[in-house]
Simulated scan of single mutants.
Amino acid sequence: MRDAVAVTQSPRPPRDAVPDHLAGRAVAVDVADPDLDADVRAVLAALALDPVTREVDTADVVVTDRDHADPRPGVARVVRVGGEDAAGDDDEVIRLPSGTADLVGALLAPVTTGGGVLVAVVGAVGGCGVSTLAAAIAVRAADFGRTLLVEADPRGTGIDLVLGAESEPGLRIEDVRAELGGPDPDALWGAVPEVGTGCRVLARSRDRDETPVARSASDGALGAVSAHRAAGGLVVCDVGGFAVGDPVLARADLVVVVTRADFQGVVAAGRITCELPGATLVIRTHRGDPLEAADVADAAGLVRWHVLPEVRSVRRLAGTGDLGGALEAGARGSRWRLRRLGALADALLGEVLSGDR
């Protein structure tokens, strides 16, 4: 076993010497390697921070050496550590013991615990209306405060089309520089197109020539999501298809999985819910579906599920960019099935805004 890092030789500061923003901070240690675990705990001891168990859901920071850290609800930050000789060149991993100063900096940095909420909508199969549902949730969420609809799908073709904002001037995903730590939330809010009172959209440009980026911190969508949420805003993300380790899904307060009432939909939804057991299922139904919605939910193993019938008027409104206005107007003059889409959006928001999750 290698020698302990030099920080272990530092005297433990008295409690009243701990910076105000560190007082009461909960740091969970989830490190499998014993040498790394000793290094991390030495740093915590030098900072007068007592580590808590990984099972504590309300930890402010989790320090881990696992490749796919899975932050639990309430965890504000994940700090990844690794050994000097470990394979890989991930810049987000702090190498110990040489990176002790970086670990100290990560632990000392203020933790944003604003009241922001992130709702992510993901499709189990293609063509099940993920963008339409995400747009509906965002429009209805505007009643609760600043709501930003973000197209997190790297292969998206412009969710602003659904809301008729494709010609509106303003920022697109490609304009956001995530590598600078995320945009200023107020500047971001003022620069993106408005699609309704209290609701704005950050979509992908349809004029881009570059290959779609992977879902990682290098993508401007994640920086925008983090910035708006940290400022206390409500974010709704169109995630598109499912990918293991998706950073948006890992951070979401509510994940909505949309699927169809057929065998392909059941299998795909089951695979996703194995990775995301706390998700809520929305089953898009059509006349003549081979399966009942209840059977789909049962096979997927989810307790929370909703049914949304296919409605031609909704598809038409989304295609013409009039969906946002119809939903914002509420029930007045709307067909009952369009009202059902609004009611579903309200029900999903109720799950995450009621504080019961």
Rank of each mutant, 00 (worst) to 15 (best):
R2G: 14
S10F: 15
P11W: 09
P11H: 08
A17Q: 14
V18Y: 08
P19I: 07
D20S: 07
D30K: 02
V31R: 00
D35V: 14
D37Y: 02
V40P: 12
V40W: 05
R41E: 10
L47T: 04
L49S: 00
E55I: 01
D60T: 03
V61F: 03
V61L: 08
V61W: 04
V61G: 03
D65R: 04
R72T: 12
P73Q: 10
G74L: 13
A76D: 11
R80C: 07
V81P: 07
G88N: 06
G88A: 04
L96V: 10
P97Y: 11
G99Q: 05
L103T: 08
A106P: 09
V117E: 02
L118K: 07
L118A: 03
A120S: 14
S131H: 06
S131P: 00
A135Y: 11
A142T: 03
F144L: 12
R146E: 07
T157F: 07
L161C: 04
E168F: 13
I173Q: 01
D175E: 12
G181F: 02
V192N: 08
G198F: 04
E210Q: 08
S216L: 05
A221V: 01
R229P: 01
G233Q: 12
D238H: 14
G240A: 05
A243R: 15
R251T: 04
A252W: 09
L254D: 01
V258N: 00
D262C: 11
G265L: 06
A268N: 02
T273P: 01
E275V: 06
G278N: 04
A279Y: 07
I283L: 11
R284H: 05
A294I: 11
A294K: 11
R304Q: 10
V307S: 01
V307G: 01
L308F: 09
R312G: 10
R312M: 01
R315D: 13
A326Q: 10
L341V: 12
A347H: 11
L349T: 07
D356A: 13
